[in-house]
Design a binder for these strands. Structure first.
Lengths: 223, 223
DNA sequence: TTATTGTATTTTGTATACAAGAAAATACAA
DNA sequence: TTGTATTTTCTTGTATACAAAATACAATAA
């Protein structure tokens, strides 16, 4: 099993720390799909009692990252090719909505923020730290979702994007693809700045399609 | 506080029974927005220990129906007018996606199922049992989501629709509006049967818009 | 060999005990 | 009366104990 370690924060309840720890491990693939989440084992590894472990598992379960069968315990949720297709369809619909909100409606300040987020992402790519790349990519997209002003949309998109990140880590390591991601981000910012909805939509779809393509290959390779 | 009672199911862990009980109470408005969810009180009312209560609260929290502040406990989440607008925007985007899937693609059997679900809904309206009306309305829409074949879409839509049901109960009591809901459902089935995407979209949007209108009034009246 | 039964072990489910933090009540001084 | 300590009470957070179910596995019979 993965090597788990808690980063204690004195004021956060242990259940939240445990939740974040397990969640990270799942999203990064350190806890593998199908792997059992046994309470005592996790409690031993993390040096806490079963109570916070159980509460964290309930949270993961609700989020779709774990599946529990009553009296059999929990395991890391599996993600299939079909799941991925479905998630991407939903994402396309919601990214389209996001573009309806932002095209022609972002303030110059928001666009500046977006450009900045894009630059920070490029720097992360230059650094080569995959954790950071992943994080900065998410942040870039979050700037857009926040600009929509629709909090619900933002939170659903965050969930979706994080669930996808279970697979993104794999391809974010390939430098060639990262160059392409940068180009697509730039194209998207340009489109948003132009204020033209159709342009925005095209840039978004291009970005999603190429990402989906690569992730599918990763999943295929993993089975 | 609401009068809670557990419907024990021998094989379901108590946490799940408690979760469903609390969730229902919140969605029906028996537990009011902002109301505190105190562990001992709930445990006493439901005749269980704090452990399953806590796990149920963690699930509600993850679902957005409860908010917990560390060391202060949990309370029923509040829903504002703005929240409602946001949820409806998301729902519109996803219903549009659903229509893309189903228009022209539903089998005769699926359409028959849909007509049947519609009929059952009408019967529920005739009965006047608001719990049943609510349930049959949800089931009608679920037939469509299931026909898309996209499980993710289905589960997100279910969540959204259930969250909205926190307010639907109020207006489902008014007979005049129910007549309109029936008409809209029929129009939607006809549109789907015609296979014309644009017709489907219009029928869906009409349904959503009129629902949103009424719910907004209910919220306004509640504040 | 294959099923089946019984037993030991593991694991989850639930209750409870105790610690610690937050809120409320009380006491006291200005 | 108002403001501030101080104590008390309430509530959450965490650990642990015990019960009950599931599983693993060996012994037995077909």
């Amino acid at each position: 099993m993965a090597n788990l370690e808690l980063v204690i924060n004195d004021y956060l309840p242990l259940r939240d720390v445990v939740y974040q720890t397990l969640r990270n491990a799942i999203l990064k693939g350190e806890l593998k799909p199908g792997e059992r989440l046994m309470e005592m084992k996790l409690a031993g590894k993390l040096g806490v009692s079963r109570t916070p472990i159980r509460e964290a598992i309930r949270m993961l379960e609700q989020e779709g990252l774990a599946i529990t069968i009553p009296r059999h315990g929990a395991q890391v949720a599996k993600m299939t090719q079909k799941d991925m297709d479905d998630v991407y369809e939903v994402r396309r619909a919601l990214e389209t909505l996001a573009m309806k909100y932002v095209s022609g409606n972002m303030t110059t300040e928001q666009i500046a923020d977006l450009r900045y987020a894009e630059k920070v992402f490029e720097e992360a790519v230059a650094d080569g730290d995959s954790d950071k790349i992943e994080q900065k990519d998410t942040e870039f997209h979050m700037v857009i979702y926040e600009a929509t002003g629709n909090m619900r949309l933002g939170s659903i998109m965050t969930t979706i994007s994080e669930q996808l990140s279970r697979y993104r880590w794999a391809y974010l390591l390939h430098h060639k693809q990262l160059k392409q991601v940068i180009d697509e981000h730039r194209a998207l910012v340009d489109a948003i700045e132009s204020g033209d909805y159709e342009k925005c939509l095209k840039a978004t779809m291009d970005h999603l399609n190429s990402q989906e393509e690569i992730i599918k290959e990763v999943i295929k390779a993993n089975n």
